[in-house]
Write a protein that binds this DNA or RNA. Sequence first.
DNA 1: CGGCATCCTTTTGGATACTG
DNA 2: CAGTATCCAAAAGGATGCCG
Lengths: 122, 122
Amino acid sequence: MAETATLTLQGACSSREILNDISGKWSVMALTTLAYGPCRFNALKRALEGISQKALTDTLRRLERNGLVERHVLATSPVGVQYELTELGVSLKSLYCALHQWTAENRTIIHAARERFDERVA
Amino acid sequence: MAETATLTLQGACSSREILNDISGKWSVMALTTLAYGPCRFNALKRALEGISQKALTDTLRRLERNGLVERHVLATSPVGVQYELTELGVSLKSLYCALHQWTAENRTIIHAARERFDERVA
DNA sequence: CGGCATCCTTTTGGATACTG
DNA sequence: CAGTATCCAAAAGGATGCCG
């Protein structure tokens, strides 16, 4: 099944371009966090412990641009902003949660692999 | 999984660090391609059309370091190098193929979302 | 609170040349 | 063929200050 040709679609919105925006560390983690429900900016920032404000802003903009999350300005004082998965975002939810879970389940194996590799190279 | 009271174990291989190495455009695409079977360097390079040699080398090293692919030097002339998924890599296979497929299935929707966003911002 | 603008450092990636 | 080495450009990312 050499389906690579059909998956690597040419044109305005190839798989590569999409993956460029939605894969990556912060996108996966943000989406996974939002899978539990709508979340405000600083709550998200705390959940993604270690992310800078700029990186989070950029990540959320990218996800918003691709139609995966929606940004809602709350009429509170001071202003609040809530992010929420769209229908499209929800359709990716189980995939990303599974990925996140995979990292948790295999972190010991991966850690060992890294140590072997580093020793082999050193 | 001996969870000794060391802080460095958690820190040494968190989900964030794993995702940092295995998520991302090229990792997803390389892994997806290798899901169809072992593949040699230049064949992989052609499949990931547009990737530079350096980026591919770096990507494969990262995947190898994390125990997802294995590198086999073939005794041919001139030398050949074949990359193959490990058992761990296979365990991620369905996840990444599903992700790749998701991008293909939703590319029209995403493209439309991008256009709406860009127009809203402009 | 949730940004944006600016500056600056780090990382990443492309291009090219060279090698076993 | 499958790299490595080097240089350079571009992008990502942190720190800080300001704002509605």
